[in-house]
């Protein structure tokens, strides 16, 4: 529809993306809390290298992506969440 490419829609999309970064950057614990929580969940499935992990919000084309780079040492066999 015509609304798709309207300048209002472009403004909204740009604003949403910029606020993803702003809100994450200005809240001091946001990225470290996210990192801790994600690492805890991933660790249930695989043995990961805690020190080499890297989490970033990156703008890709017209959206923001959460890019996680987590070194995997070993996958736990038959692991299901919650059945420790």
């Amino acid at each position: 529809m015509w609304m798709r490419n309207s300048s209002k829609q472009i403004a909204k999309d740009r604003l949403r993306n910029v606020l993803v970064h702003d809100r994450a950057d200005t809240s001091p614990d946001f990225m470290s809390n996210l990192r801790d929580d994600l690492m805890r969940v991933v660790s249930e499935y695989m043995e990961v290298g805690q020190s080499g992990a890297d989490f970033q919000l990156q703008s890709v084309d017209d959206h923001v992506a959460l890019i996680a780079n987590i070194p995997v040492k070993q996958v736990r066999r038959g692991r299901r969440p919650g059945n420790n």
Binding site: W2, M3, S6, S7, K8, Q9, A11, K12, L15
Partner: peptide, 8 residues
């Protein structure tokens, strides 16, 4: 706004 050129 109606024209789609300003956020509502």
């Amino acid at each position: 706004v109606r024209r789609g050129d300003m956020m509502s």
